[in-house]
């Protein structure tokens, strides 16, 4: 599904701030994989997702989706394959535009934008039924501006937008970290539902080790720009958080920086 070979990204090359954020990252995802990504601050998790999404050119390595190389495609040309939800609820929606306008832009993800009226009654019905499934009462607020919504509502909407048109790969970067625990749980539940329903291939960064083991079928750990652990199958079902931390220390030769980490 997703194949990443020897991916390298160096920020500020040739300056005193030079930083090798990705150091020969290798990863192979099977269709339908739901992989949780963990690692200390600055491990390169976000950089990895940004590289896959095409936010910046990488320095070396290759990225393939379903055998098609996308390493050098700009972000907007990968949009038909990849969709994303960011940590900041503000960054996944256009606040000055209405809920239905945001949804129609997502429904047309990766397609050519034409000079034709964007929203018709057919689309509106689709949006209403999809919003109903969120259970947040947004189905009656299609023409409200998104900046009137709460952070949790906005994040749920972003998740809906990301999956309205089935992507080949869904990238989630701590997408519940900015929400209160109850809303976060709700958004996570929606995430599970939709990934199951649509059989999505997903990469989800989280700082919650509990979530990392509870969700998905596979967990990878990053450290200093590398994937240092890849846990799946029986190994994973028998995994505990303390064993995970132990394995991290062995693999990286250092303590995991746990200040932002949620252990239980």
């Amino acid at each position: 599904m997703l194949t990443v070979r020897n991916l390298v990204k160096v920020f500020n090359r040739g300056t005193i701030n030079e930083k090798k954020a990705l150091n020969q990252v290798q990863l192979e995802l099977a269709p339908n994989d739901f992989v949780t990504v963990i690692g200390s601050n600055g491990a390169g998790k976000s950089t990895f997702l940004n590289a896959v999404a095409g936010n910046f050119p990488v320095d070396a390595g290759q990225i393939f989706i379903d055998g098609e190389e996308i390493t050098r495609l700009p972000a907007h040309k990968r949009a038909n394959l990849i969709s994303r939800v960011f940590q900041d609820p503000l960054s996944g929606t256009a606040g000055s535009m209405t809920i239905e306008e945001n949804l129609i832009m997502a429904l047309r993800r990766g397609k050519t934008r034409r000079l034709r009226r964007a929203i018709g009654s057919q689309e509106r019905n689709l949006f209403r039924s999809k919003l109903e499934q969120l259970g947040l009462g947004l189905e009656d607020r299609l023409t409200h501006r998104v900046n009137l919504l709460s952070g949790g509502q906005r994040q749920a909407l972003t998740l809906l937008m990301a999956t309205l048109q089935k992507p080949k790969l869904l990238l989630l970067d701590e997408h519940t970290a900015a929400l209160d625990p109850k809303t976060a749980a709700k958004v996570l539940e929606l995430t599970c539902d939709v990934t199951e329903q649509q059989q999505l291939t997903t990469l989800m960064i989280t700082h919650n080790l509990d979530h990392a083991l509870a969700f998905g079928n596979r967990t990878i750990m990053m450290h200093e720009g590398r994937v240092i652990l890849d846990i799946r199958g029986v190994d994973r079902s028998n995994m505990t958080i303390s064993r995970l931390l132990e394995m991290f220390e062995k693999a990286s030769g250092s303590h995991m920086n746990t200040d932002r980490m949620i252990l239980a």
């Binding site: 999404a53 972000a75 907007h76 040309k77 949009a79 038909n80 990849i82 969709s83 994303r84 960054s91 996944g92 929606t93 256009a94 606040g95 000055s96 535009m97 306008e101 129609i104 832009m105 997502a106 047309r108 993800r109 990766g110 397609k111 934008r113 034409r114 000079l115 034709r116 009226r117 964007a118 937008m161």
Partner: peptide
């Protein structure tokens, strides 16, 4: 129109609309 929405969202949230393929 679809094009008009793409234009408006470019001014509102460039990162988002680029990730939606514009």
């Amino acid at each position: 129109t679809e094009l008009g929405l793409a234009l408006r969202s470019t001014g509102d949230n460039e990162l988002m609309i680029r990730s939606l393929g514009v």
